[in-house]
Design a protein around this nucleic acid. Structure first.
Lengths: 190, 190, 190, 190
DNA sequence: GGCTAAACGAGACGGTACGTCTAGTCTTACG
DNA sequence: CGTAAGACTAGACGTACCGTCTCGTTTAGCC
């Protein structure tokens, strides 16, 4: 028999409003302009209601990512039959993502969030690398599995992150080189 | 002929004290506990003296990195003749770096700094990847050069960064798999 | 016969627990650290149960005063035959009352309560001045009655309150002077 | 020679703006609706600027009283030659003071402030009782001085405070009785 | 050697956000 | 339907830093 306490239950409306607000503000202004106070204001919610359920802004964001509110469609890998180009396209898409307002890269903001919040960090890797990427990569690498496959996935995503952090320009060809370096294309041109 | 103004010149003592303080505080408490006010206090310097020469705390840190005050010795690649193991050792060292005080990873703090400051971002990639790594990698990859070589270097460092952000445990073997995935060791033993 | 309503009736246990808690917290920490939340917590009672029966913390306190839970014994006037000294002793006792915890004067806390709550204000004067003081004063003032007697009582108690608010030190002699000033002792020796 | 520190000096504009704001808000809404945040907002000042110079809202108010911004003119005693009536008039004026907005008595608010802040408490007694009252009282009491005179002054002001706290109605005649009780008018009528 | 001007330490300023606390209302499940 | 529990919106608390702006003091070159 369960020792269930009485009393009101978590408000789903507030829960959703908070996630909505967090995602909207994150997309508009980036991670370090994201504030608990701002989220509460936008969501029409008391600050305490946020602190009651999440310890930090990073964790609010982490839940939003998990629910696919951030990076929702960007995780879809194209499938043209050419895995090499598909991967490069997907990586380029990730690299190119912009937050609408001031052009601050969304990926860079996501990295800032990950650096500041353990939960977001865990999810950044887990969610983005999820099934589709690893699967396609496995095929492209002739059935490689296990730690070696994971390493390859980390290498691809990590390289894109590093490049986003560096603020340099990279184009589609650069992403192709990256894919080649990782899936080990036999004769790299040039 | 120079139109030289009169008056005192930049105080080298203050300059060094600021960098020292910034590095010390960064190592002790990580990037997001690093504050301009704290640096000024520790350095025994007026805040204005910092703002006069650097626009943000990220840029103070960037200069410290450039001068090798951060990651000084960690950038040295061991040379045992086995490039594969040397690279894995070096990557593992980078991954393992801890800030002394509260165990927050130094690499993760560095990433936070890079996410917040363009200058630090530029240098994170440029300084760490500098000559030694790329050179050794080139040898290990049978003379590969150009964008493909850069891609390989990005992949290695990026993967380590991603793994640091994820807060998961990775050991030396995992780093070996990573190196294998990138330099394309022919027959990876599982 | 009374048309009695159905359903549960006011819980006497809760009622008493609330008053007990309020008195205890008031004595420990003074009026402005007294909170509805704290009372509810200490009494093991829902906040709503308090709000259902009292509009403010001041009114909870007011009821406690009425029931003699606060200032219970302090209202007893000594009776040595010397009304002048008896009154001074009683006033001095009132002035000297301390809340146990941090030494904040109980009388001062009571005044804070009275300033914040009409009900407490009413009772502060009515309960403390009640019968014994006025009666003794009447005797001491040779049978004075009516508004003049009330004024004298107000003067005595008010002066003590004012002195408590001022945080200055007053001793027994000062209280004697006060009594003399009000009951009009013929030749005050300096 | 004074060891004076360098650096900016206290802003007189901010200082005055804060006192102005505090007085205005106090008069409008009473002591317990007075907030540091509200003062800062109204004064156009950062909260820290208030906390830098005063430990609590009570102390801000205390300074305002000292400067005569509160109770400025109310401290003037009329002088018609009839000390008894002059005193009653003055006491009645004090009792009758209203804060404009919601009718909460100003004197009661002042008492709340005094109960909460040592500095305000000290000044409530010291400033209001200052010279004029004591002097007039001395005359009215046939040259009485010293502790007995102080006691009489405390009795008058204290009684008015107590009456303000009690929320009962008192009229001019009641104040006359009070004065009579204290200055010892020989034959109190009725 | 006096003058000018910038760099310095110190730190006050108007602000924003923090994370905590309490107010008073509302919701749920129990008895 | 009164209750214990506690979630809700609202907003004040006092603190920490932000980046800017004085202050007076301390150096340089320059006349």
């Amino acid at each position: 028999m369960v020792l269930s306490r009485s009393g009101p239950v978590r408000s789903e409306a507030a829960h959703q409003a908070i996630l909505d607000a967090a995602v909207a503000l994150f997309a508009e202004r980036g991670y370090d302009h994201l504030t608990m106070e701002g989220i509460a204001r936008r969501a029409g919610v008391g600050k305490q209601t946020i602190y009651r359920w999440w310890p930090s802004k990073g964790d609010v964001l982490a839940e939003a990512i998990l629910e696919g509110r951030l990076l929702g469609r960007e995780r879809d890998l194209p499938d043209t039959g050419d895995a090499r180009r598909d991967l490069a396209t997907w990586l380029n898409g990730l690299f190119t993502l912009r937050a609408s307002a001031d052009g601050e890269g969304l990926l860079r903001s996501l990295v800032a969030a990950a650096a500041g919040s353990a939960e977001t960090g865990r999810r950044l890797r887990a969610e983005i690398l999820a099934a589709p990427l690893v699967e396609r990569l496995s095929t492209a690498m002739a059935g490689t599995t296990g730690p070696r496959l994971d390493a390859a996935a980390d290498a691809l995503l990590g390289a894109v992150i590093l490049r986003a952090l560096s603020r340099e320009e990279f184009d589609f060809d650069d992403m192709l080189h990256l894919v080649d370096a990782v899936i080990g294309t036999p004769t790299p041109r040039r």
